[in-house]
Design a protein around this nucleic acid. Structure first.
Lengths: 210, 210
DNA sequence: TGTACATCAGTGAACGCGCGTTCACTGATGTAC
DNA sequence: TGTACATCAGTGAACGCGCGTTCACTGATGTAC
């Protein structure tokens, strides 16, 4: 019989605590907003002593930036998955509405964090989110540029549509996050609204250019 | 020679202090967000002792609600003025973009307050703003319903366009508020963007319905 | 007009509390031999 | 494998600070006669 390995290496345990701090902060932010929560509240919720917090983050600002990173990696995964779905290519608008609603429902906390702290967060967090959203608009523009019909548009026009889509996405994400649980009727309404708005943007854009 | 009247009645002096508290809170909110500022900070900035604050407001929450009221009365005045302008009726979209940019520039503080605290503010402030925005969508729908071409639309469709307009207005107001001063180039860009978006909504809606 | 009293916006001391941050520490995990 | 030492995640006491709120007060403005 061999000696059982230690249940967790020091490094793994540290990472576990780090994630505990992150998820505690994310949860507490949901009700009060990140700027309103204290280092001590987060530590208490994570089950550590306030001084232990400093083993993982220099300050609450740094913790906030880590949450921004985490949230946007969620967002990017969603887009990557959506691109693999062949349905998206053919019925982009209907699919996009479905994907948005599902993704936001699954990652309510992260989407909520972004839409809340984009305007309400501490300075550093706010500007980090704005920067990420700008990047995201450009990334989405690249994806959109490859779609049929859009191939022929100018780069500037595609960028503009991308900006409108992202803005709409943010607005709709806000609505979904605030949606009380277990109201499939509301969900369908938001989805339908998102579809209409995207159609509006695409149709309006085509006609106005033509 | 008659006795000169007292420079200010007790009531007038009280009102002056109240306005001083309101404007102090509005100014301090701009950099840190309303939820982050303290009763003592506001009092200090207004030049009164913290205890005197209570002669005017029961709590910071009540002060927040007073700021919501003030901000929306600014917003409503803007719409009322815009309706009087005959140009608006004829060239609604171009005029609306101009009016929006000008109004927001003149009342940056109030528009900033609404867009910031709509998501980042304390609970009571947030829900008050949401309620006011919902009211505002309905009010704008009534105005829109009277316009040529739109007269024939269903109530539901007009409500939907109104919602999109307000959402857009909020987004654009956010951008203008964040715009650094003395950059007329940026201003023109935002105005042009607002025009395009509104055209998009109107054209897209008409075509999609037709 | 003058006097005596009431009102009440603003004062200033005091309170208990949660905060961020410091510091020297403990004891389990990891490493060298 | 066993021993001796190093590392370092988490501890717990202590600090000074700004906070919201209480209280009894002051003194100018307002009112009754």
């Amino acid at each position: 019989m061999t000696e059982p390995l230690p249940a967790e290496s020091r490094q793994a345990q540290k990472e576990r605590t780090r994630q505990l701090i992150l998820s505690s902060a994310l949860e507490l932010s949901q009700t009060q907003g990140f700027a309103q929560i204290s280092l001590r509240q987060v530590s208490r919720h994570a089950g550590i002593v306030p001084t232990a917090f400093y083993r993982h983050f220099d300050s609450m600002d740094q913790l906030g930036l880590a949450l921004v990173e985490q949230s946007f990696s969620t967002l990017r995964r969603m887009i990557r998955d959506a691109q693999r779905d062949p349905q998206v290519f053919d019925h982009i608008i209907d699919a996009a509405a479905d994907v948005l609603v599902e993704a936001v429902k699954q990652s309510k906390a992260h989407f909520g964090f972004v839409s809340r702290e984009r305007v309400g967060g501490p300075d550093v967090v706010r500007s980090a989110i704005r920067h990420e959203l700008d990047l995201f608009v450009s990334e989405l523009a690249v994806v959109l540029a490859r779609l049929p019909n859009i191939e022929t548009w100018t780069t500037e026009d595609v960028q503009m549509v991308s900006r409108l889509f992202v803005r709409n996405m943010v607005s709709n994400a806000e609505e979904i996050v605030e949606m009380p649980d277990g109201r499939p009727d509301l969900e369908e309404k938001i989805k339908e609204g998102a579809r209409r708005q995207m159609r509006l943007i695409v149709v309006g854009f085509r006609d106005w250019r033509g």
